[in-house]
């Protein structure tokens, strides 16, 4: 049991078993936590109401397993399908008004720095494409222009899923949806490129098909945001319901969309400052490894 996450002894006998499991085997204060803990440790998500097979659920699991310091992290969500998961996670989180998430995160990150000057506090925004790119675009961009030190994750399902399938800025050109029957007339907004040009020190575009890659990207993004500048991750989490896929077809849809030449082929942008920070981390790890192997031999 970690030091920061404890259960009040007076409540032990009345708390549900799920809660006790979380305190007992949840991976708080666990260095090198990751998806490898699945199946043996209690995950930081409880049952939620996303559709069966929804890739947003898969991505959410991988992210919650990967964030480096869940006990010192505050997440900011927005309206959309993801807001059905936020009340069920074991990390402090704020539900912002639709589109306001990056403005809320800005104030939060600054307030946490004042309130806890001696503690590292990570802020992570997680919102849909409608919240990030359409209604919240102003707040998204302004936070990057100001080089605010937090991570923005966009669950890109290329439409407004929660309200029945309206057109979004990240929808592909020509796509037809239930509530967008004419077909989109414009190109998918190139937010990763805009992020790079707007001040982000780390940008990645990907799908949630490989837990180890999600883990690596999330860890890098959070650490770079802590030490260097804003980071942005765009993850394809197809809305199987709105694109007419069966519940078991989400993984294949992600794999197809990340093939070479496809729109979600993995791409990463790392600024020179972020790169030298990552190099420093790698050096440190190497030195630690050498020291421990030297100690045992």
């Amino acid at each position: 049991m970690g030091k920061k996450i404890q259960i009040n002894k007076e409540f032990v006998d009345i708390m549900p078993q799920d809660y006790l499991d979380l305190v007992e085997t949840g991976t708080f204060e666990t260095p090198n936590r990751g998806w490898k803990d699945f199946g043996t440790a209690t995950e930081l998500i409880a049952e939620h109401s996303l559709c069966a097979g929804c890739p947003e659920s898969i991505a959410f699991r991988h992210i919650m397993a990967s964030i480096p310091n869940p006990e010192d992290t505050v997440m900011v969500g927005s309206t959309g399908c993801t807001s059905l998961v936020f009340p069920m996670i074991a990390v402090h989180n704020i539900h912002s008004l639709f589109g306001n998430q990056n403005a809320i995160a800005t104030g939060l990150k600054r307030a946490l720095a004042v309130r806890f000057p001696d503690r590292v506090k990570d802020v992570i925004v997680l919102a849909g494409d409608g919240a990030t790119v359409d209604i919240g675009l102003d707040m998204t961009l302004q936070s990057w222009f100001r080089k605010e030190r937090f991570t923005t994750i966009c669950f890109d399902n290329e439409l407004y899923a929660n309200t029945g399938g309206q057109e979004s800025g990240l929808m592909q050109k020509g796509f037809l949806a239930k509530m967008a029957p004419v077909g989109k007339k414009f190109e998918k907004v190139r937010l990763p490129e805009i992020a790079r040009e707007s001040g982000c020190d780390y940008v990645a575009i990907m799908t949630a098909s490989k837990p180890s890659l999600v883990e690596k990207v999330i860890k890098q993004a959070v650490l770079i945001a802590r030490e260097v500048g804003p980071t942005y991750i765009q993850i394809y989490t197809p809305c199987i319901l709105e694109i007419g896929k069966q519940s078991m077809e989400g993984l294949q849809e992600m794999r197809t969309s990340e093939a070479p030449g496809e729109r979600f082929k993995f791409r990463e942008f790392i600024s020179p400052e972020a790169q030298s920070f990552l190099d420093g981390l790698a050096e440190k790890k190497k030195a630690e490894k050498l020291a421990t192997s030297g100690a045992t031999s």
Partner: peptide, 23 residues
């Protein structure tokens, strides 16, 4: 093998029975 445990969309849904070593 951990494939099902990795990809099940639901958290804490497929567990590893560490004595029998089966999902």
């Amino acid at each position: 093998c951990r494939l099902c445990i990795m990809y099940c969309p639901e958290a804490n849904c497929i567990q590893m029975d560490t004595t029998k070593m089966v999902a």
